[in-house]
Write a protein that binds this DNA or RNA. Structure first.
Lengths: 209, 209
DNA sequence: ACGTTTAGAGAACTAGACGTTCTCTAAACT
DNA sequence: AGTTTAGAGAACGTCTAGTTCTCTAAACGT
């Protein structure tokens, strides 16, 4: 009879399950993205790096898109809070800065890849679009309502197109430019587009003597 | 000795070259896109449908993206002209309508797929971005300069962000919505965003008694 | 403590697309 | 007519997506 080591083949290492395995898989996804970008994320690669089996991956997610999407959700922990500084300008900047911080990091890279996936194969995910669009738009509406309640802007001026304009500029730049979203850009979006559209602070921009 | 038919194998059909072959290949690309969308375009599929060889395809284009991109260029024949109706509102509507007509058709489907490709693999094509961004932006700048020269808007108000806002809304809707770009949307973009940003026609929208 | 059920590791396998390369031959050129 | 160029068709090697198999550790019962 062999000693106890002989009974242990290469599969006898401690085996993770449930949440622990999930976390290990998400970590592997981020490592793959960080190393060679979204395009380099393959199911085999993630499984290998996480020391998980492809069967385990496919038991949890139907494909790469669903996996990366859940990894992104996981990395963003928690719904976005609505800022309330008492000034529309500061609220708007806070919203855009929060979005920019996410989009400039690994989560942004993942979302770019996922958006690419949905553009090529529209059947894959209305879900991705929901996220990318839903959050910022909802919060933007909320801070504008706050401003209208304070009398800071005229509620009659508020339309869907005007509310969407700022976020649309942010997204355009995120999608079409490889450069990070810098703060100057966000300030321009707020001062040159969002506030003028709502009739706030007609072209008096801070910093000009 | 067999008769003359025996010497003709299945390769003996008339053989196209140069521009004629190019056109046949482009037609095949559009047929494939129309049938099952961008995702279904494969080099094998296009070659088969065009009765061309894959070798001929790869001699002309390095890959699928380059092929579809050139097919799109080919379908758009000619650079965009700058409208000059004498009214900024009409000029802007003309530009957006021209863009929308393209984007609502098969060319739009191709561009969506190509954009998806570049988002997943940024190395592929700065070229695609150039097109998608370049044209509308350039023409938009031109009509605004015309309007400023007529005294229709204040040149001091014109900034890059303001000029980009309208096109950004168009693109956002193109990218994130599967629905076609309808004319109501374009009118809203012009009347609620573009003109107010440039200080034209402050909220007097036609059609309201 | 023991037995049953669940779920993970690892590997083999199929199928589809990419991109390459080969041969044979029609079209274009001189 | 003879030469060169370029296209048709097919075979091939590779990669990735998914699936399915066996074996076994972990979780959960009694």
């Amino acid at each position: 009879m062999p000693d106890e080591a002989a009974g242990r083949d290469h599969r006898t290492l401690p085996r993770r399950r449930g949440a622990a395995l999930n976390s290990a898989i998400f970590e592997a996804v981020w490592a793959e993205i960080a190393e060679h970008g979204y395009a380099a994320v393959t199911m085999d690669g993630v499984a290998g790096r996480a020391r998980a089996s492809k069967a385990s991956l496919y038991r949890r997610w139907p494909g790469r898109a669903a996996l990366v999407l859940e990894a992104a959700y996981d990395a963003m922990h928690g719904p976005e809070s609505v800022p309330d500084t008492g000034s529309l300008r500061e609220d708007a900047l806070a919203v855009l800065r929060h979005a920019a911080r996410q989009l400039n990091g690994p989560v942004g890279q993942a979302l770019r890849g996922l958006l690419g996936e949905t553009l090529q194969n529209p059947s894959v995910a209305a879900e991705v679009r929901e996220y990318t669009r839903g959050n910022v738009g909802r919060v933007m509406h909320a801070i504008i309502e706050q401003a209208a309640a304070r009398g800071e802007c005229d509620p009659a001026l508020v339309t869907d197109r005007k509310v969407e304009a700022g976020p649309a500029l942010l997204r355009q730049r995120f999608i079409f430019s490889a450069l990070p979203l810098d703060d100057d850009y966000l300030v321009q979006v707020v001062d040159e587009v969002m506030l003028p559209l709502l009739g706030v602070c007609p072209d008096v921009v801070a910093g000009d003597p």
